[in-house]
Structure formats: C-alpha cells, structure tokens
Amino acid sequence: MAIEFASRSVPLERRLQTAAVLQWVYSFLALAQTCIILFFVLLFTRFWIISVLYGIWWFIDWDTPSQGGRRGPWLQKSVVWRYLRDYFPIKLIKTADLDPSKNYILGFHPHGVLVAGAFTNFCTEATGFPLLFPGLTPYLLMLPLWFRAPFFRDYIMSGGLIPSDKESASYLLRHNKGGTALVIAVGGAPESLDARPGAFTLLLKNRKGFIRLAIENGAYLVPIFSFGENELFDQVENPKGSTLRTIQEKMQKLMGVALPLFHARGVFQYSFGLIPYRKPINTVVGKPIPVTENSNPSSEEVDHLHKLYMEKLSELFEEHKTQYNVPADRHLTFI
C-alpha cells in the first residue's frame, strides 16, 4: 500500500488542529494509564511526597465524582478545543429551547468510536452550548472505572464528566431543582463495536435505564443525533458471530470497556493511524419530551415512554438526514 504523506505546505492553522486532535486521542486512549504509572513511579523517586500527598487528597476527595464532580471553566474554555472543533469541524444545532427551570436527560446517539461530538459539544464551550442553552449545565456520563485513576480523575471532572452509574446521575437530579442536563451516550461502549462509516445501527431497543431514571426524577428527555459521528474511523470487520466479535464482547463484559479495532490516518501521513478523518460532525439537539415524575414507575410506564423516545429520535433523524448527506433510503435500526 502506497503511503500518502502530508504536504509540507500545510497551513499552521491546520497543523494546530491536528495537534489538538492528537492530544485528545492520547487523552482518551492512554492518559489514564500514563497517570497510574506516574503515580506509582513517583513513589520510588525523590518526588515520592507528591504521590503520598495526592493519595491523602484522593482518600478525602473519593466521593466527589459521584456528587456532581468538580468543573474547571479554565479547561472548558481552552483555545485547544476550538482547534479540535475546527479540525472536523463540529457544530451544535439547536431545534428548540430548553427551559432552565427543568432538569433534562439528553440521549446522545450514536456513540461512535471516541464520542467526539459528545465531548466537544458538552465538555467544552467550543461549540457554544452556554449561548445556545443559557442556564443549563451539561454533565457527560463516563464509565466509573476512569474515576479511579489518580490525577486523570481530576482532569476529566474538570470537563464536567461524572460516573455513569445511577447514584451519580440521581444525585444531580435530586439536588438541582433545574438547569441540569445529563448527557448519556445510551448505546455505551458495546455500540462502538458497530461504529463505522455508513452505519445507522443503535443499541437502544433494550436500553431503558435512562428512561426509568428520567421518570423517577421528573427529568425531561431530549433525543440527540450526531450526524457524522460514525464517519471518523474505519473499523476491522467484526460481524456478529465472528471470532473477533466474540472476543471483543467477552472482553467488554470482563473489563467494562469495548475494544474496537479502529484506524484512520496518521499525523504526517493520510494512509493509516489513530487520528480521525476530517469529517464534519453535526450534533442536532431535538425537542424535549415532557416527563411526569413518579418515584416508582411501572414497567408499562417505562415501556410507553421508551417507545415514544425512539419515535422522536427517529423523527429527528428523518427530518435532518438529507441535510447532512444521508441517503433518503437510509433509516435508523434499533437493536
């Protein structure tokens, strides 16, 4: 295979965009592991006191991620994220106002490989979330595992991330009487195994936990479809029943994280690597679905709202798909 190298005349602006994406990919794939190694390595150097003091702080601060986290506006406003936004580029599209006196659960679809749209739109201010939805504070849910990594936990909390368990989500909805927007990539890690260009398969048919959470707390539901999310990477073929898929699913159940074998381009060449393609992402936020609070909803109530949610998500997709170059004969598939 011939390697296509990047031109030396690439403008500085584009080089900075690539650098921003490179650090983001590294943060997503390896920063947690780097922080864990650093924590233990420091213990065997003259800087051991750093790890010891952090360990004490970590013990005192253990419950913070589950109690709303600790946001860092300095990080969310960083110029780095504007370069990340412009690399693709990524846009946040509003279709209706969201009343800041209400709480919301925003269902994000599809998960994609690295949830680029969810991170950029809701963990940074690069696409203008505070301007589009004044009075709302977004919190993106992430696997609880990552909040057990020293140093890394503080970094991701600064971006407004919280653990994706029911207790952490319920805490915010109970304690904040309005203005909270929980963003949930409903398909989760398993859905990333089907994330490839042209795919419109969503792991949603039996995902009802977020529906029950909404009813129990009276939080309005908002469907979101991020057009272009699956176009960023190619993935090794892994159809259901294949040896690779079986191994990936077993690893996912064992570790809690999916391991899609994805690839795209490199930093200095366009033929292979882990840097995403420059494909536009248009994240469309749908209209809110009113929810009546019930601390003990029945299965029928959950099923009814779940069916309504899927209908509204499909309507959102159908209404906007041709605008974002999705063929008219393509439709969402729920599994």
Rank of each mutant, 00 (worst) to 15 (best):
L193Y: 08
A96R: 13
F40S: 13
Q23L: 15
G128L: 13
R212T: 15
Q252A: 11
T127Y: 09
L305H: 05
N238C: 08
F39G: 04
L136P: 02
Y26N: 13
L114F: 09
E125L: 07
K166S: 15
A126P: 04
E229I: 00
M157S: 06
M255E: 12
G72K: 03
F40H: 12
R174W: 13
P288V: 03
R245A: 09
D303A: 15
A258V: 02
V186G: 05
L53G: 08
G209Y: 08
R71G: 08
H306P: 02
L114M: 13
F272R: 04
T127W: 02
K102Q: 15
D154A: 12
P163E: 00
A195V: 04
H320L: 06
F152D: 03
E231K: 01
G218A: 10
Q248P: 01
R14G: 02
K208H: 10
S164E: 11
S168N: 10
W58A: 00
K240N: 09
V115L: 09
E125K: 05
T292K: 14
P150Y: 08
E4R: 07
M157G: 03
I50A: 11
A30K: 14
A199D: 10
N103V: 06
E315F: 09
N296M: 13
A96Y: 11
E311M: 09
H331L: 11
L259V: 07
Y220E: 11
A30P: 02
V285K: 01
D99H: 12
L254Y: 14
R278T: 00
V115T: 03
D234M: 07
Y220V: 07
K205T: 09
L182F: 07
T64H: 04
A2H: 14
E293V: 12
G135H: 12
N294H: 15
D194Q: 11
Q23F: 13
Y220S: 13
W146E: 00
L221A: 02
K312S: 12
N282S: 13
T243Q: 11
E311T: 13
F108C: 03
G69S: 02
T180H: 07
L202A: 05
S51T: 13
